[in-house]
Design a binder for these strands. Structure first.
Lengths: 372, 372
DNA sequence: GTCCAGCGCTAAATCGAATTAGCACCGCCA
DNA sequence: TGGCGGTGCTAATTCGATTTAGCGCTGGAC
């Protein structure tokens, strides 16, 4: 009979393999699991291997999981994975680590609806995931749902007071120090402003931790060098917020700012616009430094010097920890370093008080020389 | 005895529920499944429901799946989910649709290594996923691995000649037409250039389809109005490619371009830079229109008018199709509309031949009036 | 000749649900 | 009083693996 259409494809089971090899399912199981705690003749071993190969046997992970209670599966629960463009990097890092350890990743997101969370967590637990990564896309404090208590959980980019689980977060304080050092090394000691600095209470419900720790690292390191922040201009997180905040900063009286430390690349983007509008050059008149390392940071002219939030490393670390960490997990906080991406936007402070300058294109062109 | 530490938490099974309700597991199963094809007294029904509630019973999805062969699970296989920032939107759309249909999503990516693909697909099939979404992050032709033949598969953002499965892709040709219409409506009939237009062979192995179809739609619609493309300047996909291409275009002789249709927002970003360098205003001297709608498109001054690749809708449509479509699936190509995001970068063509203009800031400031 | 040890394997139970087959009881009718 | 049909349930099997318990054979020691 000629083959017609796709074969019915009943799945090849271990009994099929055993039958073909002329052994019991038990023997086949031990051979295929590579277990040596049962004596099996070399001949039988060979026949089982051969039969499995010939039939294209693949163990049914569902059946195996039912017995072993291990699914080689992780669940990732997050608030919103895409309001932020770099969230993809977190997932990619997690995916990579999971692949290395031969696990598969369930991704879920509540879409900002906290009411959806218990349902999603239940769906994961119903499927017997080996571990759960509870992730936030902005560093903040969270309250994971009660079903997760006592489970193997790692908190990613968040802290949960009173919930016994390790956290993996960016080393924001270290990042602040690094930022300060970059500025100090370029010669800045005065006129350093934080834009969108503390960032508390900008996002419900608990506000963000990042801004606070960054500012702390920044001021500490400046203080260690006998310098200090000239001031802080709080604002939102978007380009437009940055533009307005910097425009106001320039419009107010007092000594000219020499360096701006922006909370995000987006606010830095706005800062560039405001500076250009005022006829100020980057970094000739004002240095700009920020946090995130979004892709456009390298397209700007001059390229934006920024602290690269280690999204990929965070995702990776969380999975490595949840799968490879001690049992049970210790509720420690793991801080992942935040590397500096030095581009062209930080330079030595302007010599004079150059409040206003020759407009536009010239400044941009000078910047362009410094672009990578 | 006082409770000490987390309870051992043996999972509550259906037998536990049945025992407590004083019925057999069979009865409990029928009650909890809501099946009416077996006669069960109202009293028994009540007792089972009550017992399940009291014990906090949740069915073990693994055990159920073993029996029913349905896991309420989908696998998404993609090349690289994050080289592109909008990939997250695809996933978010898929996640939303999956949630609506009470399915969970396994996400995998090869990380650009095609050798990893069979292993990942096997891992999914071993776990008995109900369906697979095979996704590419740039629209192109692909060759899914043979294990997927005969399975329930939807191709997302790609086409696979000879592989019997439906595709969900952006309506690139329609997008090209829309772009042309936007330009025609603003009064453009001459000096319309495509930048980074055809885009073939820029990515291995098969080149991209998007550029070709877009260009087709663009030229068709222009032709229908008796107009035509002034020319095409092929280049890469990045900001810097766009900047160089446009700079060259402006430096060459001939009539000045009046409108640039850029292949991506990134090239448009570069185009803005090149135009500013040449002292040309957007849209006063040159209109700019592009494809993608990345977030920075709205931060530029003027805001970039762009065709929003419907990533979210694509992800949603793929899941809706693979779960809700006919059995078996018809190998059709579903084209998802690409909406225009009109911002400030398209305006009426310049009256004269204004080759060079007053530099920088003025142009930007005019643009800014049009920003949303 | 018997006993024991070791070898190489198999039978059967298990995981937790879904599902098929069929049984005990009741009341009604002849 | 015996049969019959409907009601309301249960026992047993199945899904496909893992894992425990133990069986039959052989060869050597005594």
């Amino acid at each position: 009979m000629p083959t017609a259409g796709p074969p019915p494809r009943r799945r090849v089971t271990m009994s099929d393999v055993a039958r073909r090899a002329g052994v019991s399912a038990t023997t086949a199981s031990f051979v295929l699991a590579g277990r040596t705690d049962m004596r099996i003749s070399e001949a039988a071993r060979q026949r089982v291997q051969e039969a499995a190969r010939a039939l294209g046997y693949r163990p049914n992970a569902i059946a195996r999981s039912l017995r072993t209670r291990s699914t080689r599966t992780i669940g990732l629960v997050s608030d919103t994975i895409t309001t932020t463009p770099y969230a993809g990097e977190v997932i990619r890092g997690a995916l990579e680590a999971a692949r290395d350890r031969e696990h598969l990743l369930f991704i879920t997101e509540t879409g900002g609806d906290p009411g959806a969370e218990p349902g999603l967590v239940d769906a994961l637990l119903d499927r017997d995931v080996d571990a759960v990564i509870y992730a936030a896309m902005y560093t903040r404090t969270v309250a994971p749902p009660p079903q997760l208590r006592g489970r193997r959980v790692v908190l990613l980019n968040c802290l949960a007071p009173g919930f016994c689980a390790p956290s993996v977060v960016p080393d924001e304080r270290g990042a602040g120090r690094t930022a300060a050092r970059a500025l100090l090394e370029a010669g800045h000691r005065e006129g350093v402003w934080a834009v969108g600095g503390r960032g508390l209470a900008h996002r419900p419900p608990d506000g963000l931790l990042a801004g606070h720790d960054r500012l702390r690292g920044l001021t500490e390191e400046l203080a260690a060098a006998g310098a200090a922040l000239a001031g802080t201009s709080e604002c939102g997180w978007e380009a437009d917020d940055g533009r307005r905040a910097v425009a106001e900063l320039l419009a107010r009286g007092g000594p000219a700012p020499r360096a701006l430390v922006c909370a995000t690349d987006r606010t830095a983007f706005g800062a560039y616009q405001a500076l250009a509008d005022a006829g100020l050059r980057v970094p000739g008149d004002v240095s700009v430094l920020s946090f995130d390392d979004q892709d456009f940071a390298s397209w700007l002219r001059p390229g934006l010097t920024t602290l690269a939030l280690p999204h990929h490393a965070l995702g990776r670390a969380a999975v490595d920890l949840v799968l490879g960490g001690p049992r049970p997990l210790a509720p420690e906080v793991h801080r992942v370093p935040v590397p500096l991406r030095a581009r062209g936007s930080v330079g030595p402070p302007a010599a004079g008080g150059g409040r206003v300058h020759s407009p536009g294109a010239d400044g941009e062109r000078q910047g362009r020389e410094r672009t990578t």
